[in-house]
Design a binder for these strands. Structure first.
Lengths: 243, 243
DNA sequence: TTACTTAGTGTTAATATTACACTAAGTCGA
DNA sequence: TCGACTTAGTGTAATATTAACACTAAGTAA
């Protein structure tokens, strides 16, 4: 390794927060675009300062002393959106020299999966404006955040096929139809109902609950819960989840 | 985003360089451990300065002005090992506060795949000692480089199944047996010869060459080359490579 | 010419995937 | 209360994929 006069760029973290607004939940109203119900959504923050003042951007901020990147991501998520204890994973570190007009800033990006009903932007502890946007109708974002979102979307699409992370986006109790719709909107393709159920149940990772959905004007559907403990045990033994 | 008195850690890049020393190539002798022929290997640098003086470490160094992380990785690879124009991909950014005893250093790691016969450590343009080590007999590394290598190994194992990157580790002309051995050592499992050939040939990505391996005291094997152009065309159309 | 070594090849059984349509259970309104 | 409506829930047969398995071919060396 060289000792060389090297640059000290600022280090920031940007977080791509995915949510899922399911059809049959009242929360849909939170979404700006009514037509985009039942779809993946993204949490954005309206910037209060220059550059890109009033533009929408990913939540994020600078790293502090004695803080890992992951801790920065957790802190910013809490400060800017009131979100904590969610699925969070490092995505990619963006380093183009001119990605920020002020000075050189390297951004380590993370992506998070959030059950939207638990985290309404209005509940944010911060004054900044946070809002869910349907992935189908995203505004142009500040900085290189469009690129970050694109990277995250690809990663989510790849990951959801081989790891049971979809459950992070759903309430604890969910129906198989909800689960299938979620997969369909992430993967962007329709799936066969019978085959989907057969496969997802074959892993034995879903417990069928006793309660059912009520007050719907059609046959009530069974509720399921994901058995995380069982998954962890099986995963260690080499279970290969795939859908 | 906050304006806040934030830390300015140093930014370094560390590169996990994988090579493959195949059985029937004379280069095997370069490897320290003769018993570990036909295996994945890792390029390490002996540190000339404190901390961890004389310990083995990943090649790498600090980012410079007007340089992206990827450019840093490319530059260091060239400076420290004389390696250029190889497969290089970002891996993960490590940020534990105490990962370097001197001061806070955040490391963006990359992994590279190198055809070893082209790059003999002795050809390095740099005075530092570079050497190939069999993955089966790695020394204890400096800093948190053990962890970085572990992360890279997992990534390589996952990636090689779904993308035809194995070819980056082989000479342009190779035999199907070599290719199979490579997959076996990356994945750590034996594969069936007939099934392997059937599958790998079924993608139509290998051209059989006219020449054959010569001067072996057994039936000479056909040589193949990977058709990168064809792969790129097919990949765009949605070809799903998997082995 | 024989022994040795690795290259190269096909078939069958088991498993996994796909395609596909009707009945069940509730609500609502006439 | 009955009929219309809506979504839930279920099985089977055809096809494709994977897995298991052993012998002949082509060269060198002694």
């Amino acid at each position: 390794m060289y000792t060389y006069e090297h640059e000290r760029p600022a280090i920031a973290v940007d977080i791509v927060v995915f949510g899922y607004h399911s059809d049959d939940k009242p929360d849909v109203k939170i979404l700006k675009n009514k037509d985009a119900k039942d779809s993946l959504s993204l949490l954005l923050i309206r910037r209060g300062i220059e550059p890109f003042k009033n533009h929408w951007a990913l939540p994020g901020g600078f790293i502090r002393k004695n803080e890992t990147l992951e801790e920065t991501a957790e802190r910013e998520l809490k400060e800017e959106a009131g979100i904590e204890n969610v699925f969070l994973e490092q995505l990619y570190t963006f380093s183009h020299v001119d990605r920020d007009p002020r000075e050189r800033i390297i951004s380590a990006s993370y992506f998070a999966l959030v059950e939207t009903s638990k985290y309404k932007p209005s509940a944010s502890t911060d004054a900044s404006e946070a809002q869910w946007f349907s992935m189908n109708k995203l505004p142009k974002l500040a900085f290189d955040h469009d690129e970050i979102v694109k990277t995250a979307t690809l990663r989510l699409r790849n990951k959801v096929r081989y790891e049971p992370i979809g459950f992070e986006l759903l309430p604890q109790k969910f129906t198989l139809t909800q689960l299938q719709s979620l997969y369909e909107s992430i993967l962007g393709e329709k799936m066969d109902k019978r085959n989907f159920r057969k496969k997802i149940l074959s892993y034995g990772l879903l417990k069928e609950l006793k309660s059912k959905i009520k007050n719907v004007s059609h046959r009530p559907s069974a509720l399921y819960a994901f058995d995380l403990k069982k998954y962890k045990v099986l995963a260690k033994k080499g279970l290969e989840f795939e859908i």
